[in-house]
Design a protein around this nucleic acid. Structure first.
Length: 446
DNA sequence: AAAAAAT
């Protein structure tokens, strides 16, 4: 249990970059996987929970196995989204910081293809790719995978279902005698049977910490809301988590846009991410989120898998995920590398019945999140309104004369009296009707 | 039905 990377066969040359990345000891999945990859024999199927270091588990040994005298592509890593592909590329680059002779390229879509084609003319040993763009390059015959030795499918269950057509095309053009490595946190039974189609050698299965079901560091909670109070409950939750960071998942791109707009109006530090945005915008939002310039990411399932952002303390399911796997991946954006995190699911009455299925299927237990009462929600909305005033910038010129007339009106008030006046005005303008008990009782009969 | 992935 006190294994070091050197005990697993990782060379001295990676020690510096590992310590620069504050990686000191191998995780369970790394300890089990690295020696088997380094032995140059079998194919691998690796199951390990979210946030346990799968990228380095294949990245480190495959970097080390790279023959730097060989100019052809030896290792291909496929990921389901461009953001994840870029993240894997960045991580490999950092792991190879002391080994600059290893040439790594990222070939994801959404960026001009010409520069990529030019780049591929240089010696390249490791390629991280999304399937669509790679197939495009293969059809143009501008990438050579004839010397491929290692083929990695990250998020393997997703790759061989949602992206099956592209992956199958790629499988056909790469050497039969390659080694194949499948990595995932979820492997539904229906997918298990498909695995053999992708393997070419004897397969070793590795399961790291999968014996206890559910992720021990994630606090699963749900709250039942009426449709009209859903947004208010979310806003109250976000205000209670001020300064903390997290991701809010919605079912559709339209819902992401709508919610992100609403958060922006309420002056939350937030951004939207989904597949209909230009790659430029996607990259900018991801960058801002990773750097901590944005606290809240509102996203579709584009961000559900693999994305590793530091210090996310919560995930919110603003809509229920479609599958149990999607729940595992979404909630797995928090509680990474040993940290704790909250996964909050906001439900409507008719969806509560699904909770038991999630519990049984995933071996987790939900706690009930205590919904803010009507008064706290109203107070919270008043606070949001005050924050809005504070953060609003003038959008046109105001004459000095008008300004001085208005100043005269308030001139004799103290700061406290001024606040009272503004608040009194707000409260008369917003005569919020608190939800009546009778209303909710009536609804429950259905 | 929706999400992702090529232009």
């Amino acid at each position: 249990m006190l294994k070091q990377f050197s005990d697993l066969g990782i060379h001295e040359s990676f020690q510096q970059s590992l310590s620069d990345l504050s990686i000191s000891k191998p995780t369970d999945v790394q300890e089990k996987t690295i020696p088997v990859v380094l032995n140059k024999k079998e194919d691998l199927v690796v199951l390990a929970k979210t946030g346990t270091g799968k990228t380095a588990a294949f990245g480190l040994p495959l970097l080390q196995l790279t023959d730097t005298n060989e100019v052809n592509i030896q290792t291909l890593i496929l990921a389901p989204t461009r953001e994840l592909g870029q993240q894997i590329f960045t991580n490999l680059h950092a792991l190879a910081a002391e080994n600059p002779e290893i040439k790594i390229a990222s070939i994801c879509g959404g960026t001009p293809i010409k520069p990529q084609i030019e780049l591929l003319k240089d010696p390249t040993q490791i390629v991280v790719a999304t399937p669509g763009r790679l197939v495009d390059l293969l059809k143009r015959e501008v990438i050579n995978l004839n010397h491929l030795k290692h083929f990695v499918l990250d998020e393997a269950d997703e790759m061989i279902t949602a992206l099956k057509v592209e992956v199958d095309y790629i499988i056909k053009v790469i050497p039969k005698n390659r080694r194949t490595f499948l990595f995932t946190a979820t492997m539904p039974g229906t997918i298990k049977q498909l695995i053999q189609n992708y393997m070419s050698k004897h397969v070793i299965q590795i399961e790291a910490n999968m014996e206890t079901t559910g992720h021990q560091d994630i606090d699963h909670q749900y709250v039942v809301v009426e449709p009209i109070e859903k947004l208010d409950v979310l806003l109250h939750f976000l205000n209670s988590r001020a300064g903390k960071r997290g991701i809010i998942f919605c079912k559709t791109k339209a819902a992401v846009n709508k919610l992100a707009k609403n958060l922006a109006i309420n002056k939350f530090s937030s951004g939207a991410l989904h597949g209909s945005l230009s790659q430029g915008i996607r990259d900018r939002i991801m960058g801002q989120f990773r750097e901590g310039h944005i606290d809240i990411l509102v996203a579709t399932d584009l961000a559900a898998r693999g994305i590793d952002v530091k210090e996310l303390s919560y995930v919110v399911n603003y809509h229920l995920p479609d599958t149990y796997e999607a729940y595992v991946h979404r909630s797995g954006r928090t509680a990474r590398a040993g940290a704790k995190g909250l996964s909050l699911t906001i439900l409507q009455e008719e969806e509560v019945i699904d909770i038991a299925d999630f519990e049984n299927e995933l071996g987790i237990t939900f706690k009930i999140f205590k919904k803010a009462d009507a008064q706290s929600i109203e107070e919270n909305n008043t606070l949001l309104w005050a924050k809005k005033i504070f953060k609003t910038k003038p959008n046109r010129e105001v004459s000095e004369d008008l300004k001085s007339q208005i100043k005269t009106i308030f001139h004799h008030l103290t700061k406290e009296e001024l606040v009272d006046k503004i608040l009194a005005h707000y409260l008369t303008e917003n005569t919020t009707v608190l939800p009546k008990e009778t209303v909710s009782k009536k609804r429950k009969k259905h």
